[in-house]
Design a protein around this nucleic acid. Structure first.
Length: 351
DNA sequence: AAATAGTACAACCGCCGATAA
DNA sequence: ATTATCGGCGGTTGTACTATT
């Protein structure tokens, strides 16, 4: 069905915004919140469509926007996230505070993409151009592991972004709190921390931890322990390890499960039933992560990891789930990092 | 100094998913 | 269950600005 564009109405202005229009828009939102974007232009006395107003506010007028040059760290983050998420700019933006998706997208197209191309890296696959021609089978196990990790991390980031979005929706309703967007001094009432953010933080922490083990080369000790920042639970991380996620597609679970089938430890329960639940069968990884996180952290579960897999210890009141996540020997971030470092060492100083 | 090419980024457009009617 | 509407997203364009020839 054809729906006319919202700006097709007669008399509506297009093109660059004037200072006067900006002022009208800001003044209106400061006083009333944006409410319905569709209805805003008329109420605010603007000859613009709602969509245009929204865009102007989101990408330019909002007070909590950082403008100006991207830092080295921001650029690296964008490249890394793009490698995992592709052109999901809004998801990427949730990991770069105060930057808009539009700004990130523009920066990618005008700077970062070109730099990667100069470095001989395919900006879409994030692989060296020569390698990009090789099939995954030809790339061997490392490529497969890399892909596992990318999917895992991508799912995690997506789940986290979803939560951030959900949380901001809760607090951004103009009827509830119209002023939250307007000044950094006015702080919106803090929404209750979603449980699964905790476990996602933990994962983030875990990945970061592995990254630092590798870069410091301190691999002598068989395990290292990372603290969960909020729950107080510990994760034991085996040396030179990396996570990949559960599910037939991502690991050979059948084999791994045998290692535990012999144990009669009542503190651990088999995860397979959890995943085989038909309700979850059609879920993507991000959804499963969210659910799993809720279940685990909601019950103060403790995660433990041995050399090949991670288990979620059943706590007193935890009835329905535990976790099982395999560990592989490749770090996606490291690969990406060394990829970028090595090519910048050979070529022109890119970063 | 003028013309041209390249860059930066604001803004628009069309599509899609969620949701209300 | 269907349709209409809205908000949000990603792709793309238009234009102002800057560098180069």
């Amino acid at each position: 069905m054809h729906r006319p564009a919202c700006c097709e109405k007669e008399g509506q202005k297009k093109g660059p915004w004037t200072a006067e229009e900006d002022q009208k828009l800001v003044a209106y939102i400061q006083q009333h919140g944006h409410g319905s974007w569709r209805a805003l232009p008329e109420k605010a006395g603007l000859q613009r469509c709602g969509k245009s107003c929204r865009l102007r506010w989101i990408n330019y007028l909002r007070p909590d926007i950082k403008r100006g040059k991207f830092t080295l760290l921001e650029e690296r983050t964008i490249i890394q996230l793009h490698a995992l998420l592709g052109n999901r700019w809004s998801v990427i933006a949730t990991h770069l505070p105060k930057r808009t998706d539009n700004e990130i997208k523009n920066h990618w197209h005008t700077h970062l993409k070109k730099r990667l191309i100069k470095m001989g890296i395919d900006p879409m696959t994030h692989k060296p151009k020569a390698d990009a021609m090789v099939s995954p089978a030809g790339g061997g196990k490392n490529a497969a592991n890399l892909s596992h990790m990318a999917q895992w991390e991508s799912a995690r980031l997506e789940a986290e972004a979803r939560l951030v979005g959900r949380r901001s929706k809760l607090v951004s309703s103009p009827t509830q709190n119209p002023s939250h967007l307007l000044t950094n001094k006015t702080v919106a009432p803090r929404a209750a921390r979603p449980k699964c953010i905790d476990v996602l933080k933990a994962w983030q922490c875990l990945v970061a931890g592995m990254f630092s083990f590798a870069s410091h080369g301190t691999l002598e000790s068989p395990t290292s322990t990372l603290k969960f920042p909020y729950s107080g639970a510990n994760i034991q991380v085996p040396e030179d390890s990396i996570l990949s996620f559960n599910g037939e597609k991502y690991l050979d679970r059948a084999n791994k499960m045998q290692e535990f089938e012999g144990t009669s430890d009542p503190n651990f329960i088999d995860m397979s039933a959890w995943f085989e639940d038909p309700f979850r069968a059609g879920n993507d990884i991000a959804n499963i992560m969210e659910e799993l996180s809720e279940d685990i952290m909601g019950n103060s579960g403790v995660m433990k990891m041995n050399s090949s897999m991670m288990r979620v210890e059943k706590s007193k009141n935890m009835e329905s789930c535990s976790g099982i996540i395999t560990v592989e020997n490749r770090d996606y971030w490291n690969s990406l990092h060394s990829l970028v470092s090595s090519s910048s060492a050979v070529g022109s100083p890119v970063f």
